[in-house]
Design a protein around this nucleic acid. Sequence first.
DNA 1: GTAATAAAAGACCAATTAATCTTTTATTAA
DNA 2: TTAATAAAAGATTAATTGGTCTTTTATTAC
Lengths: 147, 147
Amino acid sequence: MLSNASKYAIRTVLFLAKNSSPKKKIGARHIADSLEVPQQFIAKILQKLVKANIISSAKGPGGGFYTNTKNLKGNLLDVLSVIEKNDIFSECFLGLPVCGDENPCPVHDIVSVFKEALLERFQNKSIKTIADEMERDGTLITLKNII
Amino acid sequence: MLSNASKYAIRTVLFLAKNSSPKKKIGARHIADSLEVPQQFIAKILQKLVKANIISSAKGPGGGFYTNTKNLKGNLLDVLSVIEKNDIFSECFLGLPVCGDENPCPVHDIVSVFKEALLERFQNKSIKTIADEMERDGTLITLKNII
DNA sequence: GTAATAAAAGACCAATTAATCTTTTATTAA
DNA sequence: TTAATAAAAGATTAATTGGTCTTTTATTAC
């Protein structure tokens, strides 16, 4: 459903939301180590996220990646749309071109409930809200809690 | 989440369950046309399904693919396990290696409800049952209802 | 047996995704 | 102004998935 790139992107954004700030920037290497993902690959993803204004960055010594208050108001649906080319919320689980409420596939009922719940979370909750709820609910994007 | 190969495989098996029998075999070309998928590709998938005893086949004139009563007792989980290399029911939606009830990711709650519902349908219902429910519920695996 | 039919098998090619390597640019601090 | 640092950019390679082509084998009907 999601490419590795999208999975890494979502985890990265939440990692920065939880651990960074304009005063606490984090380097690509550190992010890669913390999330246990390939460093060079995550660097490319970080570039895209910066270009799309989803996260922020600074070059040079003391530089790195971080989220500012504006970034934190974004949502995870935007993260997906930057990385993923197809909209996962519109494609049929069994690949039916016509699948929808009028022409449902044999798992349309189950899948659409799931998609609605996920879309609600990805669209209507800010990155900040999700990061806060991670604290509250004890959910994780890595076990390696560095910093 | 599912590869094209798996999507085609599931649709093919259900197509045969609905339209074929030991007395009514269907050729690869006809299946490809009906489901609107690449013929040569589906031929490869059909081979695997036959080898795994999920569907049946006969060579020569009047030959083709079909499901017999034994085939119809199988389930869609077996179809997946023949085609897909990773178990979609065990991997984390966000790619967390440790994700589970003890170490949930931020969407684990939503995703596990979905997976349970899907697994129940794929594991506990026979192919025959799903095909029957398709009639009852009016769900589809193609709009092109040939035959 | 021969011709036609259709699946099986194996090799092959194309496209996408994943990942890496190298060079450039911007920033900082000495 | 130089050295160090770290992101940006671009090119390249590797792996996986998707798809096609060609040959072989089995079956049927004549």
